[in-house]
Write a protein that binds this DNA or RNA. Structure first.
Length: 564
RNA sequence: UGGGGCGUCGUCAAGUGGUAAGACACAAGAUUUUGGUUCUUGCAUACGGAGGUUCGAAUCCUCCCGCCCCAGCCA
């Protein structure tokens, strides 16, 4: 069983929530939210957050809102919103009618800002961006107060209204919170609340030319939605005092608890949105849904199941340790899920022609092949057999090393679900010495897969009938990066891309049952790996399969050890 | 050299004073018409380090060391 639903997840966040139940801090209510900014696609790191926030809501019979944190018009688009909604649904979570946008709160937020000015807790500052930085001081020296800090409330009200009215150029003024320029916490040194951006917003158009900053908008959005637990990642820990400051300054009754956890890092993978955008924009991958991308769209196209991803998120846990999860765990989770669900099928990726000399020309047979070795309920299909078949080149070696027990001259193996065949001749290209085809004889008495005389065979290999099989393209995907921690390698990660992250095989042959394989359907190619039909490029007349993940391969391990 | 966090097996991660869960990885073996699956077994005298409190400490105290985050009018 791939799901361990017996024990509900437990972690420090759930501990805090349960403590809140005991102290009745939120009247027994649990309301979370998933607040992505629609400026990119969701990736496996977001999945961790989605599973956490929605998972908590389900577990404690609360709610989890979907909210677009769209407070910066630059880079935010409806396309990203659509992709985010699609991906969260695909992962298996729903928000009913609770889809919200920070941009829907712009009026309310503006009123809150005005209220802060009225309370003497915010002011319009006309320092330039550079000056603001200088005035802010640094990690060891306190900042200096802005010369605009003590302007009158009336003056601030007037200026802020004119900022909104579009009377000033970008950068001319900002609205700042009046907190403490000497705070050891940099985020409390009179943070910017609003900046002027004469940039159209994908939802509000040109209605606004001032936009709220994250710290101001986020806590208030949470408060407006009556969120109880505002879960975010570790880098916002420094911002928590500010989160609380805004809510306290406005004396809001709805005051959520911000809780921070460690974001997901995965070995051999990059999960920085900035880097992912770079990979897409510079063309290192085919797009956000390239099967090599750690995006949910990419993983979906690659053949990952939502169940595997959710299970992965449960297993990695939630804590505050800055950690890097081994990508092998993710791969284990898909294999575990697909092992149960994927029908077995035969495909030959690098065909080697095999002629069965003693099998009558023109004769055909059909073998009944079960779709799953441990689950008869998945049924079976007929697989045609004839005199000429293809096997994988990897399954034949003219000069086999010790532990190789597949086909070799003079050796007998079993064809999966079929006869025993024995290699009697090898035909090579006289010029190159490359093996062109091999000849075998079969034992008609072994149709059951066993020899009447009880003799054993060391290996069973997969095959496909030459005339009956279908041509197919197979895309072998591997890890995008060669190094375990690409981020550690400095600013230019593109030099660490794995040149073999994609290998396209165009002369593959697959068994005929795959002729109408539905887009996105998943299979195990026996002895090779898990594959799915490409949801974009595959069709009945042009089959294209993506490798999700290979099978565990102990033979490859033996080979590697031998190398060393 | 300010502030905020974090340090338990190769990688994640339980543990909250009573004598180190689990998973992945790895290793060995069994079963097997996938060198797959499944199963069995092994894998931290030890919890960043040093002191201290205690009958007893990964858990409490002190000091030290290491790593991460913060000086966007990004989120």
């Amino acid at each position: 069983m791939s799901q361990n639903n017996s024990t509900p997840p437990s972690d420090f966040i759930r501990d805090i929530i349960e403590e809140h139940f005991r102290s009745n801090r939120f009247d027994g209510r649990v309301a979370t939210r998933f607040p992505p900014e629609p400026n990119g696609y969701l990736h496996i790191g977001h999945a961790k957050s989605v599973c956490l926030n929605f998972g908590i809501a389900v577990q404690y019979k609360g709610t989890c809102n979907m909210r677009m944190d769209d407070t910066d018009p630059v880079g935010e688009t409806q396309e990203f919103v659509d992709s985010i909604l699609r991906d969260v649904k695909w992962l298996g979570f729903g928000w009913e009618d609770r889809l919200y946008y920070a941009s829907d709160y712009y009026n309310q937020l503006y009123r809150y800002a005005v209220e802060l000015i009225r309370r003497g807790k915010a002011y319009v500052c006309s320092l330039s961006a550079d000056e603001t930085r200088e005035y802010r001081g640094n990690l060891t020296e306190p900042g200096r107060e802005s010369p605009y800090r003590n302007h009158s409330i009336e003056e601030n009200l007037d200026l802020f209204e004119r900022m909104r009215a579009g009377e000033f150029e970008e950068g001319a003024h900002v609205l700042r919170a009046r907190i403490d320029m000497a705070s050891p916490n940099m985020t409390m040194r009179d943070p910017v609340m609003y900046r002027i951006k004469k940039e159209p917003h994908y939802r509000t158009g040109s209605q606004w030319c001032i936009y709220p900053m994250y710290d101001f908008a986020h806590c208030l959005s949470d408060s407006i939605e009556n969120i109880t637990h505002s879960i975010c990642t570790l880098e916002f820990e420094n911002n928590r005092p500010l989160y609380d400051w805004y809510l306290d300054a406005l004396e809001l009754k709805s005051h959520p608890q911000q809780i921070e956890f460690a974001r997901l890092n995965l070995s051999f993978t990059i999960l920085s949105k900035r880097r992912l955008i770079e990979l897409v924009e510079k063309g290192y991958v085919g797009g956000w849904n390239d099967p090599r991308m750690p995006t949910l769209a990419g993983m979906r196209r690659r053949g990952y199941t939502p169940e595997a991803i959710r299970n992965f998120c449960d297993r990695i846990g939630v804590a505050k340790n800055d950690s890097i999860v081994d990508v092998a765990l993710l791969e284990h989770c898909v294999r575990e899920d697909l092992n149960e669900k994927a029908p077995r099928v035969m495909a030959v990726l690098r065909p080697l022609k095999v002629i069965i000399d003693n099998y009558p020309e023109g004769k055909e047979e059909e073998f009944d092949c079960p779709y799953h070795p441990q689950n008869a309920g998945m049924g079976s299909r007929k697989v045609p057999f004839s005199r000429v078949i293809y096997i994988d080149r990897e399954d034949f070696l003219e000069h086999p090393p010790k532990k190789f027990y597949r086909l070799a001259p003079g050796r007998e193996v079993r064809l999966r679900y079929g006869y025993f065949v024995k290699c009697v001749n090898v035909v090579k290209d006289p010029a190159t010495g490359e093996v062109r085809e091999i000849h075998c004889t079969y034992d008609p008495g072994t149709r059951s897969g066993f020899a009447p005389d009880g003799r054993k065979v060391e290996a069973t290999i997969h095959w496909v009938s030459a005339v009956h099989s279908l041509p197919a393209e197979v895309r072998l995907y591997d890890r995008l990066f060669q190094t375990a921690n690409p981020l550690e390698e400095g600013p230019d990660i593109t030099g660490f891309l794995n040149p073999k992250s994609l290998e396209v095989l165009r002369s593959c042959r697959v068994e005929p049952s795959l002729v109408n394989a539905a887009p996105g359907s998943r299979f195990q190619f026996e002895r090779v790996g898990y594959f799915c039909t490409d949801s974009i490029d595959s069709s009945g007349g042009n089959l294209v399969f993506n490798r999700t993940v290979s099978l565990r391969d102990s033979w490859a391990k033996i080979l590697e050890k031998a190398k060393k």
